[in-house]
Design a protein around this nucleic acid. Structure first.
Length: 435
RNA sequence: GUGGAUGUAGCUCAGUUGGUUAGAGCAUUGGUUUGUGGUUCCAGAGGUCGCGGGUUCGAAUCCCGUCUUCCACCCCA
């Protein structure tokens, strides 16, 4: 029995690395809270989709679709249905296309109050795994649907930045760019090809191949390996409208004191973007350094055959956010009360008390292995219990118990009955106090 | 898909030029001591040495293959 290659378990205990289930859930809780402050509402879609969602959504020629997607057909279907009718499924490699599929299918774009959506869940891509890159990874993403109003850009960028600052991530650069409309993209592509041919002699063969296959990718990635001057800039190929949008945006961002850098060679690996694209990279990460990325996608709904609905969004990699966090969310295993009993005949009383205290939300542990009194206290100590409750033979008969604070050593004798308030007060202000 | 490294107890690692029943620390279990814990001491459990071949009288150690993980290319979040 072995876990599938490129996949991983997230374990509860801390073995020195920070990737525990505790760090995971506290981080995702935090992310959901941020979404709430921007009034984005969670949408949960299946991890399986028809392959057409991505083939038409993000483009058949992209690497994501052509080589990284988990595709499958069901054996059952393939034996009973004619070849043309076999349904092809896939594990979703990204979040935006399924969200848009759902928005169309459920007519969500007709309800103005539902135009701010976020998702959080696993994505799948068949890649060689390495630091910050797994075959199943998690993204949180936000989509703002229904307008090309420039304030949509502002809202999305502010939200993206809020995630970084809230999680206490630094050492990142926020890069933005505009790639204009379809036509400007074509012109940029042409310009890069020409530029490449002109400089063929000084470009390595590997990069030249990329240039021929996908000039835009060459512009995005490879061109910075060289010291070229006069590298084509996307901004020189924008039409008036796109250029104005970009200038308007930067003006507003400046007025907010939003720190960004313009990268006129930034394009993205997914086909549906137009105008604004952005990407945040972190120097804390290694080779897989993209923390979050996104952009505007005004034509995606049209591609799906629905009425055009202009939208913008982004996605962040949760594994990478956690990697980049300066101070990790450390697990605190501490519990409120560890109930120890001095003799076996007190076990039932201990369990009854545990039930009552758990009912009011306190975290309680009782030794279930009938171990010796000393062993119980030792394990209470290891469990980082704030207090222990001693059900001992001296007090048992007159209906009292001893409550001992483990840090101070102070003991109090209290009645066994009707003392819930006492226990609640005892834990006030501790990390285990909930709500 | 391409390169380079890695793989010994739950964890971190030792293991000498191939030589008996493979070791340590931490963790774990039982006991002990400390008035009812963080301490001390004693004992125990736990390993197909990633897997499969080969060389050899003999392999954790050498050779080949394979898988995993990691790092980079690539791609991306």
């Amino acid at each position: 029995m072995k876990i599938v290659k490129g996949f991983r378990d997230i374990l509860p205990y801390d073995t020195g690395n920070s990737d525990t289930s505790f760090a995971w859930t506290t981080t995702t809780d935090q992310l959901r809270q941020i979404m709430k402050t921007y009034n984005f509402q969670e949408i949960i879609t299946p991890v399986i989709e028809h392959d057409s969602v991505f083939k038409t959504g993000i483009g058949e020629d992209t690497d994501i679709v052509s080589k990284e997607m988990y595709e499958f057909v069901l054996e059952r279907d393939s034996s009973t249905v004619s070849k043309e009718k076999i349904l092809k499924y896939c594990l979703r490699p990204e979040g935006t296309a399924p969200i848009i599929r759902s928005v169309i299918e459920n007519s969500l774009s007709k309800i103005k109050s539902l135009n701010k959506l976020f998702y959080l869940g696993p994505m799948f891509r068949y890649e060689r795994s390495q630091k910050g890159r797994y075959r199943m990874f998690h993204q949180i993403g936000a989509e703002l649907i229904g307008s090309d109003e420039i304030l949509y850009e502002v809202e999305i960028l502010n939200l993206a930045k809020e995630i970084l600052t809230s999680l206490n991530i630094d050492n990142y650069t926020f890069q933005i760019n505009s790639i204009g409309n379809n036509e400007s993209l074509k012109n940029i592509s042409k310009a890069v090809s020409n530029f490449g041919r002109k400089n063929k002699d000084s470009i390595e063969e590997k990069d030249y191949k990329i240039l021929n296959k996908n000039p835009l990718r060459f512009l995005d990635k490879a061109v910075h390996n060289y010291n070229f001057k006069d590298i084509p800039k996307t901004i020189d190929y924008l039409d008036k409208k796109s250029l104005k949008r970009f200038n308007d945006l930067t003006k507003i961002l400046d007025s907010f004191n939003f720190k960004y850098s313009i990268n006129n060679q930034l394009v993205r690996g997914i086909d549906y973007y137009n105008d604004l694209v952005f990407e945040v990279t972190s120097s804390n990460l290694g080779a897989q350094d993209a923390l979050l990325a996104g952009g505007r996608y005004d034509s995606l709904m049209g591609k799906f055959g629905a009425d055009e609905s202009k939208s913008i969004g982004f996605a962040a990699g949760i594994e990478r956010l956690i990697l980049a966090m300066k101070s990790k969310n450390q697990a605190s295993n501490s519990i409120d009360f560890f109930i120890v009993y001095q003799q076996e005949e007190m076990i039932e009383e201990s369990l009854r008390l545990a039930l009552r205290l758990r009912e009011v939300g306190l975290s309680i542990e009782v030794d279930l292995l009938r171990r010796s009194f000393t062993k119980q206290i030792k394990s209470a100590d290891k469990s980082l219990a704030e207090n222990i409750i001693i059900i001992g033979k001296d007090n048992f008969n007159n209906g009292t118990i001893v409550v001992k604070n483990m840090a101070s050593g102070i003991e109090e004798i209290v009645s066994l009955k009707n003392n819930i308030d006492f226990f609640l007060k005892k834990t006030k202000g501790t990390p285990n106090e909930k709500k």
